[in-house]
Design a binder for these strands. Sequence first.
DNA 1: TTGTAAGCGTTATCAC
DNA 2: GTGATAACGCTTACAA
Lengths: 340, 340
Amino acid sequence: MPTIKDVAREAGVSIATVSYVLNKKNNFVSEKTRQQVLEAIQRVGYTPNTTARNLKANQTRLIGYAWHKIPDYHHVNPMMDSFIYYLAQAAEASGYHLLTFTHPSGKPEPVYDEMIRSGRVDAFILAETIRDDGRIEFLRSIDYPFVCFGRSNPDWDFPWVDTDGQTGMREAVNYLVEMGHRRIAMAAWPEGSISGDFRTAGYVDGLVNAGLPVRAEYLVRGEHNEQTGREAVRYWLEMPSAERPTAIVAVSDIVAIGILNEIEERGMIPGRDLSVIGFDYTPLVQYLRPALTTIEQAIPETGQALMRMLEAVLNKDDSVPMQLLLPPQLIPRNSCGAPP
Amino acid sequence: MPTIKDVAREAGVSIATVSYVLNKKNNFVSEKTRQQVLEAIQRVGYTPNTTARNLKANQTRLIGYAWHKIPDYHHVNPMMDSFIYYLAQAAEASGYHLLTFTHPSGKPEPVYDEMIRSGRVDAFILAETIRDDGRIEFLRSIDYPFVCFGRSNPDWDFPWVDTDGQTGMREAVNYLVEMGHRRIAMAAWPEGSISGDFRTAGYVDGLVNAGLPVRAEYLVRGEHNEQTGREAVRYWLEMPSAERPTAIVAVSDIVAIGILNEIEERGMIPGRDLSVIGFDYTPLVQYLRPALTTIEQAIPETGQALMRMLEAVLNKDDSVPMQLLLPPQLIPRNSCGAPP
DNA sequence: TTGTAAGCGTTATCAC
DNA sequence: GTGATAACGCTTACAA
């Protein structure tokens, strides 16, 4: 690879001059010299070496992004995977690249620490944040630049972008209410997860807004899998038919799929006998029969917002708000209808 | 961040000595000095700066991986997304990280060129290779290190790992034959795609092996979407029932989903009236009713094999075979049964 | 066994 | 306007 020296020799100038024309500001280089240098750069096919630049500037223009551990390879979270694609695009638009890394499930902080100490990256983007997130605690404690996709402890002040799951769920309930439903249930995650709790809160908000009672037996909780949806349906179908919910909102698409499956196996028709709404806009759920009504997160916008925020953090620009809630969007399909 | 100088000062030795103990080989450093240095490293919390190391060594220990353009964010290919996760893991095991980048759909080569010229990466991993792949042509022409997930032109000599779709499909047909099927159809992609053509060839192999006729009307081609599966079923259902296929292999899960959906909408039961096999092991297809029998690619192994191969390329180690076909695995679920 | 110093490819300060 | 040159943090001949 040609270096700045080759260009200097070719143009008959010093390497300093080449560097001047490259880093346009201070353009006190004479037009004639500038042209010579530019032509020489063309001729030798020169591109400045990033590593050398980085060493000088003490930066990498690399942003660390950790892959979240997945137990089994078909259990990927499709939403997160499309997120990182848009994140990569947004990063490039700002002259950064994503450097991906993995870490053992229990202890991520040492890996982040190592990335920092070795000067591998300039900042991090964290996804799938949790309550008391050790990564956030750690990065805050050493004042290292980062932004998060997802919230954490409410009393922690740090930059994040998140989907407004509470509003999303409230609107889902509202959508069902307007269709005529009065007995609306929710299949939720166990208490304690941030986004799960916001979604559950939105469900309650929706009921309250509509003047509907909040009934404990209409809220069933379980893990993030198909089984949870199935068990919830079994539970509700045991209720006398006048008590039974006529519509169900699920905390996630995978839970909604379990609901759909159990409903059908009980000989009922989802969307007619029982309406169902998912959450996540997972690929393929559009091809279920009935196609699943779901709530779509603003994934491309999230990536862009995160990068905007991260640049503000890196440039110590405090004109950019450091918390951003992005409204999701209800995607009506065929799994909802008027109550029977 | 502490530098090697800080350690040297702390330990009362020269920076060269620190460097010697760091780069263990040539361990002619006295045990006493070594201990002093090690302790100093601990005390000041030193980790060598990667950028400086890289500048010296003229490397980055970064592998470029381009995200393939996706038209719409729910059209991600889940298989590819889990692939890159395993790839990242394998890379780290070899001391590399993945540097991701994107490129405009038409012209990837200039972006690869730029990454090389600016010294951003040491090598590339290409995925979703095609016939006459310009990236392969380009990287071969400048003799830059890379490995591919996927084959390309048969007369090109370059390192690749690929799923043996031909064998996979042959075994799928064989599986159906053993269940008693004699009229087996395939919903394929248009001729010209590499993996599509191998899968189609495997279908034909399977028929021939079983002594079954290869009937043109049993092979329907269409794009990679749900509609293709639906149209294929409509076509076959117009045949007189004694002629109709009793089983269908699909070139991909999404096509298989279309098949499943159309079958059900015609009032038939997949797995009983008509057996169906997909290809890709897409997440969620296990939750379809019936759960889709599909062919699983060896994704983790592919990532590992690619990294092994890439290291061989980088170290000019020619003991490692530069072409590797990995057998996929049939995952029996409920979408197949004996012919009616 | 350890230290000195050159050099990796830049940028930027200082002379001229 | 332009050119030496130091410096970024490290590795490694070579000298001691």
